[in-house]
């Protein structure tokens, strides 16, 4: 993945954003978004601590109870919504990759913005996912908007 740079469209058009994988140089307006190995390593360690019980080491989740984090529209889609799920938790009867999951997802708001950014960058670039990283600033923006 090293030589590749993942870039988001400058604007998130509609809720479902399709992330494009383009060769460098990235579009000038795009933020630098390649997941550095340090980010991934931090994200992985935090994921292991805070998410692994429910979503499992390989992101496959638990049938009927906890959804997978593999190529779901939530993981790959709109980052604001994704960050919101971590800050607010999630407990709605929604279909995720064709199935329903009955456990509640607790809020992770106690984590720092940087920690949430690292976890989400890791998740969006693991388990077969490929998507732009999440920055601490983006988490801050969503947290502020929530207040």
């Amino acid at each position: 993945m090293g030589k590749w740079i993942l870039a988001v469209m400058p604007l998130l058009i509609a809720g479902l954003c399709v992330t494009a994988q383009v060769k460098k140089p990235a579009k000038p307006t795009a933020k630098p978004v390649a997941a550095s190995s340090a980010t991934i390593a931090r994200g992985k360690a935090l994921y292991r601590q805070y998410c692994i019980s429910c979503h499992q080491e390989n992101g496959s989740g638990v049938p009927r109870m906890n959804p997978p984090l593999i190529k779901t529209e939530y993981v790959l889609g709109d980052k604001t919504r994704l960050i919101g799920i971590l800050l607010n938790g999630f407990n709605e009867d929604v279909e995720i990759n064709g199935d329903y999951y009955s456990n509640p997802m607790p809020s992770q708001a106690a984590l720092k913005d940087q920690e949430i950014a690292d976890i989400l960058s890791y998740v969006r670039n693991s388990f077969g996912n490929k998507a732009s990283t999440v920055s601490a600033a983006e988490v801050t923006t969503v947290r502020e908007a929530k207040k």
């Binding site: 499992q56 080491e57 390989n58 496959s60 989740g61 638990v62 049938p63 997978p68």
Partner: peptide, 10 residues
């Protein structure tokens, strides 16, 4: 079985 998804039958 590392994760429940690894189990063929339950």
């Amino acid at each position: 079985v590392k994760s429940p998804g690894d189990a063929q039958h339950r």
